[in-house]
Simulated assay, not measured.
Amino acid sequence: MTSSHSYFDALYADCDDPWGFRNRWYERRKRLLTLAMLPRERYHHAFEPGCANGELSAQLAMRCDRLLATDLNETAVRLARERLADQPHVRVERRSVPQEWPADQFDLIVLSELAYYLDDADLGRLTECITRALSVDGTLLACHWRREFDEAAQTAARVHALLDTECGLTRLARYEDADVLLDVWTRDSRSVAQHEGLA
């Protein structure tokens, strides 16, 4: 990861919600968009690296039988564990990805505001990890801020283009505006309506 641990340590030293996940409409709206874009109503085993304080994790938990949420920052992990304490099917661990990618198979992987912190080598390793870990009917969702900021090693557009070309998946849906880019890829290219026999 290009950004040092100290960057995130400094953010959490000042505030337990440094990006305003709880209070900002932008963040609440982004979570609603993320959840609405998932093609399946329910997933068996999901992975959310870079879970921060667990606000998105709490929403994903309602759509999954099991969820592994991770973050490299100790404070974020503690906050996420507190936020998800009433969800016994959710595990929160301290991990740095892609170096400490779990050995499990997942039918949902959510990369929210994470991959643009990675340098080229780690971004390449990330695509390899996703390819190995995603189940035969799996879904990958990526969501990234489109505007430039100093700590980003990549643009959202470059991250999503690389995921699109390197993971061997079919892009099922895209949403973009001036601020955010969301993409959903899957190993099963059928639409939601096709899954339900409507098309």
Rank of each mutant, 00 (worst) to 15 (best):
A199K: 09
D179I: 00
R22N: 09
D65Y: 04
V90N: 00
S6W: 13
L114T: 07
E176I: 05
V97A: 08
L134S: 06
A61S: 13
Y116H: 15
T70R: 08
A161P: 03
C15W: 01
L114V: 14
A161Q: 15
A173Y: 02
E82C: 06
A121H: 13
D177S: 09
H45K: 15
E196Y: 09
V110E: 03
Y26N: 07
L108F: 06
E113S: 09
R40E: 13
R187D: 03
G197L: 10
V90Q: 01
D9Q: 14
Q99E: 15
V184D: 01
A61N: 07
A80I: 00
D9M: 04
L35F: 04
R42C: 11
H5E: 15
P98I: 08
T127K: 12
T70M: 08
N53A: 07
V77A: 08
D164Q: 03
R83G: 02
D119S: 07
D9F: 03
D164V: 01
R29W: 14
D119A: 09
C64H: 06
F47I: 11
T34L: 06
G20A: 02
V184I: 05
L182T: 02
L114R: 01
S135C: 12
C129V: 00
E41P: 04
Q99H: 11
N73R: 04
D122I: 00
A85I: 13
S189P: 09
V180S: 15
L38T: 05
T75C: 04
C51V: 13
E176P: 02
R95E: 11
G197C: 12
V180N: 15
S189A: 14
Y116I: 07
C51K: 01
A133Q: 00
D164G: 02
S189V: 01
L72C: 10
D119V: 05
P88C: 14
V159H: 06
R125P: 02
W25N: 06
R31V: 02
A69K: 00
D137A: 15
R171H: 03
M62Y: 05
V184R: 03
Y26L: 10
L126G: 00
L163V: 04
A10G: 09
D71L: 10
D71A: 14
T2M: 10
L140R: 00
T155R: 14
S189R: 04
R171Q: 03
S4W: 10
T70K: 06
D188H: 00
A153Y: 12
F21R: 03
D150Q: 09
A115S: 12
D16Q: 03
G50E: 01
L123R: 12
P49Q: 11
D17C: 06
S6A: 12
D9P: 01
L118H: 05
A152P: 10
T70V: 11
L111M: 11
Q59C: 13
E41S: 11
A52S: 14
A76S: 07
A142W: 00
A199L: 15
